[in-house]
Write a protein that binds this DNA or RNA. Structure first.
Lengths: 221, 221
DNA sequence: TTGCAATTCAAACAGTTGTATGAAACTATC
DNA sequence: GATAGTTTCATACAACTGTTTGAATTGCAA
């Protein structure tokens, strides 16, 4: 296998081009030109264009998932097998948000690639995302342990909404900036994380049918 | 202009095909075959493939937006120019959710097309979405009137999260169903709407830095 | 009917795409 | 230094894409 040089250049060039210009208008020829390798190299090393994209995406996904699970594990160990819901949610959405938000010019290629993947959602990537469920189940488990009196349905909805807020904010960050005329500071990543976690926590700790008044009655008790 | 017959068939066939198979693998030739018209008809009547897609999308967008604004206007008139935040949020996310969720087999072609548009997000559609900001500003205005003591930043974040939950739930409805093993009933549309509205309302009425306790202290007063 | 515009049609165009091929160059082993 | 295996390379392929063309057809008004 000599010196992965060609393989590596292709991966780097592809990730950068996809991040910059999207999957739609980057061809294999663009990639091999940027990587200074031969056109046939892509098919030789990766089999096909789709497999190249898939490899890029799984690499980054695995990294993010590992980060998530590490945060989760730490939190549960520290809490004796039961972590506060805020901390679990933080482990769930923190890594992604931290990777994809922040000042544009210092956003990594990897992050920009993942944003693209989230926006354009090309077939090989969608296939992989469908297998992400097992990973989410680990969070469901932790959330159940953290909130033993909440029903499963509420847990699932809370998880869904947490991911919704995180992903949508990444994906539509430009629009939110424009709409708010800069008043929403998406470069302050920790603030964004805190907001998402805070709202998701509320969603999970107050039942959906409870009015504010009823919630008060219970909590004041 | 004779009898729009050709134009209409193309629109109908295109919407159905895109809804069923996505933008990625539907070609003009597929469309004209399904519509029983000549290949050149698309360019004759619409100018280009992208303009056809754009026309499909704006038509449906306008319909949804009109529905939203109608609900909003009703609510504000009834409340003397100031509607409860729950009702405003209901007007914001209700039409879309109602259009795109519900039993699969009775989901309209239009709805399925809009789900595709939300998942695949092809260039001509993205261009149009960027002009949707003016429409959202009307909701910002209503929300400001409804919650005069909330800062603009909080309003924008609340709006962002409400849209996030609605759109993500539509887009990932299959995954949520699978993850929850059917426990989350996405066919019960009004329940979904209520959940989204409820959480968004909480996000908007409780400040992000407020702990639950502090919120209680204020509300109990 | 005649004339004129709008529409339809078959066919071809021009370009791009991902992939395959088979020879050439390289690398490491014996 | 010959050999076997890996990697690179130029090139061609085959298919598909959206779009254009110019002639044929249609529909309507004068």
């Amino acid at each position: 296998m000599a010196s992965d040089h060609t393989r590596t250049s292709i991966l780097a060039a592809a990730e950068r081009l996809y991040a910059d210009r999207g999957f739609g208008d980057v061809t294999l020829r663009d990639i091999v030109a940027a990587a200074n390798v031969n056109l046939a190299a892509v098919n030789y090393h990766f089999g096909s264009k789709d497999e190249l994209i898939a490899e890029l995406f799984v690499t980054r996904s695995i990294a993010t998932n590992r980060e998530r699970l590490h945060e989760l594990k730490m939190a549960e160990e520290q809490g004796g097998g039961r972590a506060p819901i805020e901390v679990i949610l933080h482990a769930l959405v923190g890594p992604t948000l931290r990777g994809c938000l922040g000042p544009e010019n210092q956003r990594s290629t990897a992050a920009r690639f993942m944003i693209r993947a989230s926006i354009e959602s090309v077939p090989p990537i969608r296939r992989i995302k469908n297998r992400e469920i097992d990973h989410l189940r680990k969070f469901v488990g932790a959330m159940r342990r953290s909130l033993p009196d909440r029903s499963d349905v509420e847990i699932y909805w809370g998880l869904n909404f947490a991911l919704a807020m995180a992903h949508h904010t990444i994906r539509e960050s430009e629009r939110l900036t424009k709409l708010s005329e800069g008043k929403c500071d998406l470069d302050d990543v920790e603030d964004v994380v805190a907001r998402v976690v805070s709202v998701a926590t509320m969603a999970l700790t107050m039942g959906k049918t409870e009015t504010k008044a009823r919630a008060l009655a219970r909590d004041v008790r």
